[in-house]
Design a protein around this nucleic acid. Structure first.
Length: 1079
RNA sequence: GGGCCAAUAGCUCAAUCAGGUUGAGCGCCACUCUGAUAAGGUGGAGGCUCUCGGUUCAAAUCCGAGUUGGCCCA
């Protein structure tokens, strides 16, 4: 058992992130911290978060880690604010990527291997692989403290989830948005399936580049086309031109023996003819005709491979020139575009408009069918060479070479994709385009440009969604068609398992049926004498996650939460999901429900490497989250990730920044452990001695840190509500490091050292206790481990078992004090300036100074100093503070003027810079407009005046006194002058404190306990100094706990020579207990 | 090739929307302090604000064209 440590237990001297994590993990297990936290909020207002499911291949990388950390911070924040948050994680487990991984493992090369292995076995293997990967991801996410419902994630491979997809698809079908049709798609010939455009990866490759002449059939000459895919020439159906474009007819010869006018007649774009003829090695040519594209329309030509491909397109209207908007007379090619509606997407669309039948002599495996005549049985890319040779043979080849260009490849197996026309099933989202665009408005995006620029553009351009894949590992299409038909006229779309069981001919149990392909392929439906069989395709894997907003709720099989929760309140993913999950959910939500299925989107960026490049395995610049955790701990890693702007910008990884976060946590740890021994010693009980109880005894500094705490809470809450957790974290770090650690703790240390019980000490205890308690609550969403450990040490038994059950701290008006915050900000600025001035004057803080003169620029500063003179004296170690109000001035000063460009610009125009320099350089005895005007009169033209608003006067430090300006938020507020002159009294204290400091160091070297009494001997080599120090002997004895003074018989570490400000002294100490023992 | 986003100190970022002498933290160097101590304090070095044009008395900021990086699309 590892139950919570009791209140104010001893803690590690050093912050050790790994030890903390280990203890906290064990503790969470012991007290069921997560379960308790969820239960604690179960009556709260519901907040429906939907997890974008990571794909289950590979492990969590830095981007996934960032994503899950962001989700965790907002889920925790919402919980602390009282919401009952839906936190079911999800995993995307179907699809081609897993199929290809499994194929690799099994050594498969194509679909035949899968068929031989057996669909059922293959599907089983995919399921096992996906489940293994899921376990790995779960462990990764848990390892850095993400709290989601790990015991019950939604998995896209379960019957309930697959049913959710069927249901959505059937709703879309009900609305008439499902159809089967021919489309030009990207086909991977190895995977033998259509792949989505966003699954196509473009790579630079070398491809053939051929110019082909199509002989005109009813007139002399040829039109010239260019292509990088000779294999599509057999399917040529028409040629496209730009009707607005300029074209020429050219007569050209390759040898010098004939005149150009006797050469071949070629037609092509005016802008390209020179370049193309050069490619064709024509030596001379002559433009004999100039014409527009319009004039070419209707010209007919002969298919260049009519012999080799006897079945080529030759219907009415085929092999003619048509207008098309995809032609560019100034781009690549010739301005005449070879068009094969059986292949290219644009060609296909234009072919459909023209009402042409589609000719595609290529199968799904990329092999020519018998329609390709001579080329039947060849893989298309391998036929390029033969086709080119045949074109040459037929006299149709004008030129052939190669070209480097980017060409699409299958994202999984890297095979070059082919554009072919096949039968596919579509959700015709173009029919509801207006509705999609309207629905976009119903969601709120952070940042907003992501929605209004990027997302809208994409939705406007989006084509119909091809949802069918000719593969195995996916959700089967719930569509049954008559055995003897292959269109979509008569079809049955099943929406739920119950319905499936009722309608199929076979006996199945809806509660146990697995919906994968191997099961449902065997099921038939017979109705009205017709037998229906299932369409063998599975869904595009993007469809799986598109139904996550109801799949998360197990709807429709479980309808208990849908009405209350749907649509999602919040989703959060990276910007690549604009075209992915943000889009697929909008498409499916609109098609099925007529609504966008999410209200608020937070779109973050990607995790880049330290040089701003994307992390990639091949480059070898990947930083594994495990390594980050190992080096700095989960809390520091999370804080680093969460310190990045989550709205659209990419994050640059930085070890240094992550190390800084660990340092901040170390500072927090030191702050936290500092008061513990004192509290323990004094038996401080925060339940007995609350802040409210000690209200009367609070000192200024206590009230100040409490006011700062309120401001920090307000600021953090604002930032978090605007999805800027990075800025909220910055505010918290500033508070903990600057205000609590460097100022407050510094200021209250002496109060805690007081040995007897005191009201002041109790007030400090109660204050620091409140500050720490609320600070760790504020930190809990970011750094759940260290927050938990600190909370556990502070909280009493009657409180929550975990900090994560705490409410998000809210501002208590009673403790707010804006005036005090400003006062202290001013005092700190003065203190800082004073420290600077001291250093200039060569006077250490240990030595008092007779006076510090504060020359205030404004009344607000005067008020602050007047209100807190004692505190300032203390912090500056000054015997006296002298305040010079803005109306007066300190006699010994000179002045210069600082120019305000926002005033000078309008007044002096292009001479403003000149005037500014003159003002900056001027030195005057008394600040005043007349004096400064006189000093800069050289640059002023007639009638020009320096106005008061144009300048502010700045003091110049006189000799003998060190002065440093202080300011707030960039505005000067005054100057602190440190008078560092020496008196006997000051030297007496200064040297006495030097002695004290040396004794303390020796005590520490001897590892004496803080309480331990000592005997002290010291000898100073300068009689005057020795006398001065003797005046302060009581102070010395008290500070170093010396009960006895005298000659000591000790040496080595107990006796030392010191050199202090040019004076030698010898100091010896001896612990009294030891001295007595030796007596 | 197109759309969107970014570029400011060695690093991470602010200042950009509403133009006015560029700032913070971290890191580095020097000094300093020592009852939180792998801390704390003070100072310093370090910027043609990616480039080139334009608007303006005045541009990190507004406009145009590029460069580089990221995402998406072709």
């Amino acid at each position: 058992m590892c139950l919570r440590m009791s209140r104010f237990d001893e803690v590690d001297d050093q912050y050790d992130p790994h030890a903390v994590e280990q203890r906290v993990f064990d503790y969470w297990d012991d007290v069921d911290a997560y379960e308790q936290t969820v239960e604690h909020r179960s009556d709260g207002e519901s907040f429906f978060f939907v997890d974008g499911p990571p794909y289950t291949s590979g492990s969590a990388h830095m981007g996934t880690t960032w994503n899950k950390s962001l989700k965790d911070v907002y889920i925790r924040f919402m919980r602390m604010q009282g919401y009952d948050v839906t936190d079911r994680p999800g995993y995307d487990m179907h699809g081609l990527p897993i199929e290809t991984k499994v194929e690799e493992q099994l050594g498969f090369e194509n679909k035949k291997d899968i068929e031989e292995y057996g669909e059922e076995n293959f599907i089983q293997a995919c399921k096992e692989y996906a489940n293994e990967q899921l376990e790995g991801l779960q462990e990764d996410f848990k390892s850095f403290g993400v709290w989601m419902d790990w015991d019950d994630p939604y998995r896209t491979v379960t019957p309930e989830y697959m049913e959710a997809a069927w249901w959505g698809f059937s709703k879309a079908a009900d609305r008439g948005l499902v159809e089967k049709g021919h489309r030009s798609i990207s086909q991977c010939p190895r995977c033998e399936t259509a792949i989505a455009n966003n699954e196509v990866e473009y790579e630079n490759v070398e491809d053939p580049s051929i110019y082909v002449k199509f002989d005109l059939s009813e007139r002399e000459g040829s039109i010239v086309i260019w292509t990088t895919t000779p294999w599509t020439i057999p399917a040529n159906t028409f040629t496209a031109v730009d009707p607005e474009g300029d074209y020429v007819g050219v007569r050209a010869v390759k040898d010098g023996e004939r005149e150009p006018r006797d050469g071949e007649l070629l037609y092509l774009a005016e802008a390209k003819h020179e370049e193309v003829l050069k490619e064709g090695r024509y030596e001379e040519y002559e433009v004999v005709e100039e014409l527009t594209g319009e004039e070419l329309i209707g010209w007919s030509y002969d298919h260049p491979l009519s012999e080799e491909v006897p079945d080529h397109a030759d219907h009415e209207g085929a092999l003619e020139v048509y207008a098309a908007d995809y032609v560019d007379t100034h781009g690549d090619g010739t301005g005449l575009v070879h068009s094969a509606p059986g292949h290219g997407e644009e060609d296909f669309e234009r072919g459909r408009e023209l009402g042409f039948p589609i000719f595609c002599p290529v199968g799904g495996d990329g092999v020519y069918t018998d329609e390709a005549g001579k080329y039947e049985g060849q893989f298309v890319k391998e036929a390029d060479e033969e086709i080119t040779a045949d074109l040459d043979e037929n006299g149709a080849l004008l030129a052939s070479g190669t070209v480097h260009h980017s060409y699409g490849h299958c994202w999984r197996c890297d095979t070059g994709i082919l554009q072919i026309v096949t039968d596919q099933w579509f959700i015709t989202i173009t029919d509801v385009k207006d509705e999609l665009l309207d629905n976009i408005e119903d969601s709120e995006w952070h940042p907003d440009w992501a929605r209004d620029n990027r997302f809208r553009d994409f939705v406007e351009e989006a084509p119909d969604w091809n949802v069918s894949r000719q593969r195995y590992w996916g959700i089967p299409l719930p569509v049954w068609t008559p055995e003897d038909r292959d269109d979509d006229e008569d079809r049955i779309v099943i929406s739920e398992r119950e319905e499936l069981a009722e309608r199929v001919d076979q006996d199945i149990d809806p509660a146990t049926v697995d919906l994968h392909k191997d099961t449902v392929d065997d099921l038939t439906i017979t109705e009205d004498g017709t037998t229906y069989t299932r369409v063998p395709d599975v869904f595009d894997v993007w469809l799986d996650s598109s139904v996550a907003s109801w799949g998360t709720l197990d709807f429709p099989s479980d309808d208990s939460q849908f009405d209350e929760l749907w649509p999602a309140d919040f989703i959060l993913e990276a910007h690549d999901q604009t075209r992915g999950w943000f889009w697929s959910q909008l498409g499916m939500g609109t098609a099925a429900m007529g609504e966008v299925p999410y209200d608020t989107v937070l779109m973050h960026g990607h995790a880049l490497d330290e040089d701003g490049r994307k992390m990639s395995k091949s480059v070898g610049n990947v930083v594994e989250p495990d390594e980050a955790i190992e080096r700095h701990g989960s809390d520091a890693m999370r804080m680093f990730l969460l310190s990045a702007n989550p709205q659209g910008d990419d994050m640059r990884f930085s070890w240094e920044e992550m190390g800084t976060m660990e340092n901040h946590l170390r500072t927090l740890w030191n702050v936290f452990r500092f008061p513990l021994p004192y509290m323990r010693l004094d038996g401080f009980d925060p339940d007995e001695t609350t802040l409210e109880d000690v209200d009367e005894d609070l000192e200024l500094i206590d009230e100040w840190i409490l006011a700062r705490l309120q401001s920090t809470e307000a600021e953090m809450t604002d930032h978090l509500e605007e999805f800027r957790q990075d800025r909220a974290l910055e505010a918290l770090i500033e508070f903990v490091v600057e205000d609590v650690s460097r100022f407050y703790i510094q200021a209250v240390r002496e109060r805690m050292w007081e040995e007897e019980d005191s009201d002041s000490k109790n007030a400090a205890y109660a204050t620091i206790y409140r500050v720490l308690r609320e600070s760790v609550a504020l930190l809990a969403p970011y750094a759940p481990f260290v927050s938990e450990e600190i909370y556990g040490t502070l909280a009493g038994d009657a409180e929550h078992d975990t900090v994560h059950m705490e409410d998000w701290p809210t501002v208590e008006e009673y403790w707010q004090d804006e005036q005090l915050e400003t006062d202290v900000a001013i005092l700190r600025a003065i203190e800082e300036a004073g420290a600077n001035a001291r250093q200039q004057a060569g006077r250490k803080l240990r030595w008092p100074v007779p006076r510090v003169v504060v020359a205030a620029d404004d009344q607000r500063t005067v008020e602050a100093v007047e209100r807190h003179t004692a505190l300032l004296e203390d912090r500056l170690n000054a015997r006296e503070i002298e305040l010079v109000s803005p109306d007066d001035r300190w006699g010994e000063l000179n002045y210069s003027a600082e120019a305000d460009m926002s005033e000078l610009g309008p007044a002096f125009g292009d001479r403003a810079g000149q005037v500014m320099n003159a003002l900056n350089e001027a030195r005057i005895d008394e600040p005043g407009l007349e004096a400064i005007e006189a000093a800069v009169e050289d640059v002023l033209e007639d009638g020009e005046k320096i106005e008061e608003s144009m300048v502010s006067f700045v003091t110049q430090t006189p000799d003998g006194v060190a002065g440093t300006a202080f300011g707030l938020n960039g505005d000067d507020r005054g100057v602190a002058y440190v008078d560092a002159s020496l008196t006997d009294d000051i030297e007496s204290e200064g040297y006495a404190r030097e002695v004290i400091r040396r004794v303390q160091e020796m005590r520490k070297d001897l590892e004496l306990d803080v309480e331990e009494r000592i005997a002290l001997e010291y000898a100073i080599d300068d009689d005057r100094i020795a006398d001065l120090v003797a005046e302060r002997e009581d102070l010395i004895r008290e500070e170093v706990r010396a009960d006895e003074m005298g000659d000591l018989e000790v040496d080595d570490g107990n006796r030392k020579e010191w050199e202090v400000e040019g004076v030698s002294m010898e100091i010896a100490i001896e612990p009294l207990a030891a001295a007595e023992a030796s007596d």
